[in-house]
């Protein structure tokens, strides 16, 4: 790949996953499908932005809370753990344009509805049921708890690796899953089933081990397991893997990895 093409491809991938206004080619969605094996690279970049935001917010909050506690008592230690965690999760959701979060809500909306047609129709309505809201809140809450318990030093690696693992799980679900629809979804899934998808696992593994050591290997296992599991969930709810199911997988795996890393480090 020429450097110009590489930059264009990366820009298209970022345009797909984030709201960053970089400009994009007309067929950026199809490009994203073609380069599905580079998802973890985009994940690393998004994770880096998330980590930067985490430290920036922590730094600013420490001054702000220090200043406030000159006048009134505040549980500043607690708030210094909680607020950056909430803000960083929120930042990542907003950065993605809430698209993956929306997939999680749609999955929750559809769970338990009568037949497959109804469940599929529920996914393209703009409404939110209490089930969708509850599922989404629980999943994001788990992520916040994970970030809350991470110490300042390990948050950097954890945030980046969580994002990488989330994108890797999207690759996994595309490798193992069947499309719900023979249109766009099958383009993603067919691309994922090529051998070059192994690149995604190598890259994600490298980043994970580099930043988290042995824990990184555990993270990759969590990502792969959840990717496969979410494939089953998608199959039973929507009859296969759709954009919503892939998005939901991103959210579930990010949260799971954050709590996993926090748990391993605490133990």
């Amino acid at each position: 790949m020429s450097p110009v093409k590489a930059i264009k491809t990366f820009r298209d991938l970022l345009s797909f996953f984030t709201i960053i206004p970089l400009g994009k080619t007309e067929d950026f969605v199809l490009t994203t499908a073609e380069y599905i094996y580079l998802f973890p690279v985009v994940g690393a970049f998004i994770g880096l932005l998330g980590a930067a935001y985490y430290y920036a917010s922590r730094f600013l909050l420490s001054y702000l809370l220090g200043f406030v506690s000159l006048f009134v008592w505040t549980p500043s230690g607690f708030l210094l753990m909680l607020l950056p965690a909430v803000m960083t999760l929120a930042f990542l959701l907003v950065l993605s344009g809430l698209q993956h979060f929306d997939g999680l809500v749609d999955l929750g909306n559809a769970v338990g509805l009568g037949n497959l047609e109804e469940r599929r129709a529920a996914a393209h309505k703009w409404t939110v049921s209490y089930k969708g809201a509850v599922l989404a809140i629980i999943v994001e809450f788990v992520g916040i708890v994970g970030l809350f318990f991470l110490d300042v030093g390990s948050a950097f690696g954890a945030i980046i690796v969580a994002e990488v693992a989330a994108k890797l799980a999207m690759v996994t679900i595309a490798v193992v899953g069947k499309p719900t629809h023979k249109g766009l979804g099958s383009i993603f899934l067919e691309n994922a089933k090529r051998t070059r998808s192994l690149v995604a696992y190598v890259l994600a593994g490298l980043v994970a081990v580099l930043l988290l050591g042995l824990t990184g290997i555990g993270v990759i296992l969590v990502s792969v397991t959840l990717g496969v599991l979410m494939g089953q969930v998608g199959k039973s709810v929507f009859g296969g893997v759709s954009g919503d199911v892939m998005g939901a997988t991103n959210e579930v795996v990010r949260s799971a990895v954050l709590i996993f890393v926090a748990g391993v480090l605490l133990l």
Binding site: V29, Q99, D102, G103, D106, R120, A123, H124, P179, T180, H181, G183, L184, G185, S242, G243, D244, G247
Partner: peptide, 9 residues
Amino acid sequence: AEKIMRKTC
């Protein structure tokens, strides 16, 4: 339609 296609297809 592009938005819905990305979600549900």
